[in-house]
Write a protein that binds this DNA or RNA. Structure first.
Lengths: 178, 178
DNA sequence: ATCGACATGTAAGTCGTTACATGATTAG
DNA sequence: CTAATCATGTAACGACTTACATGTCGAT
């Protein structure tokens, strides 16, 4: 499966933006990549220790006791590029909503409609969040990351809009049932 | 987390369509729900044993030795409805493509464009598959599952089309870089 | 002083896949 | 006869989350 590499990649990527503590890595991933990725402390801290042992990151001096920010080393930068180039295998799909709708006959039309309305609400909220992030990014000083971050925001917007359209269509279709 | 329930739900759902062996449950999920859900033998067989122990399913007679098809009991049908009604929590997101594009600066424009082209190809293939399933479903004798199955197919189509549009847009955007 | 945010780390347990062993049945 | 498919089951392993224990720092 080689999925430990994925956490390694996420952590190295976060540190490539700027040096950070483990806590900050988690916050960064949660706030900025939250719709596409997630990591827990139980993954992050062991990974940081491993990366430091292997010389891919180093603790920065000047941090207060009980806390240390890590920065990429030159080898760490190479390692990041390596990992980015490797083919990615997505986790097997597990969409709880689709599983329920597929067996919707046993659930009943009304409950399915409720599920669809909830899905639509969530998609609308996601869309608003992405648009807010986009607006915030527009005011930021231009970093070289900018065009790539826009890519992922755009993906979020497209997906959310598709979900909204699908939910509307499906509510109509189910409405015509009995 | 209560995710063991998810496998239980998938297995009960499959058996609600028609009685099946464990092997067939896996095939059914792989072929029909493959784009939204997956289960492995390591999950299915222990779950079947548990469900039988709890009286939610029973082995049908008349099956050949070394093989047994299971059917839902009345209690099993209730159990399925119960599980369907319970609120679902999706697995935390882990989108390997987005993770890579987000750190695209370290990967380079050309490699990112290659990733996008690949994503577009995959989305087009998925769209074709969904349309094939839709066509096949149209020739089938009408079951009560029909409208619900169409729902999930439609979701797949919407998502695939959104992915294609996003990839096209993004390829253009990245093309204007340097 | 105390509350909330910052910060580190681990143990326990769940979840899930992969790989293998084993054998029956069917189509060519 | 033999290859492919149908079928069952489990052991080993890896990935990941949750919950907890512990402590620092800044603001009120």
């Amino acid at each position: 499966m080689a999925r430990g590499r994925q956490t390694e990649l996420a952590v190295l990527g976060a540190l490539s933006v700027r040096p950070m503590t483990g806590y900050a890595v988690r916050e960064e991933i949660r706030q900025v990549l939250g719709h596409f990725w997630s990591e827990s402390y139980g993954q992050i801290y062991p990974t940081l220790a491993e990366l430091q042992r292997d010389g891919f990151i180093e603790a920065e001096q000047g941090t207060r006791p009980g806390s240390s920010a890590y920065a990429l080393t030159a080898r760490g930068r190479d390692r990041l590029t390596d990992l980015l180039r490797q083919p990615h295998q997505s986790t097997p799909p597990r969409n709880a909503l689709m599983l329920r709708l597929f067996f919707g006959r046993a659930l009943g039309v009304d409950a399915c409609r409720a599920l669809l309305r909830q899905a639509k609400d969530e998609a609308e909220q996601r869309l608003a969040e992405f648009q807010a992030i986009r607006a915030e990014l527009a005011t930021d000083p231009d970093t070289e990351h900018h065009p790539y971050w826009l890519l992922t925001i755009s993906a979020g917007e497209h997906t959310a809009r598709a979900a909204i359209a699908w939910a509307d269509e499906s509510l109509t279709a189910l409405g015509q049932l009995t």
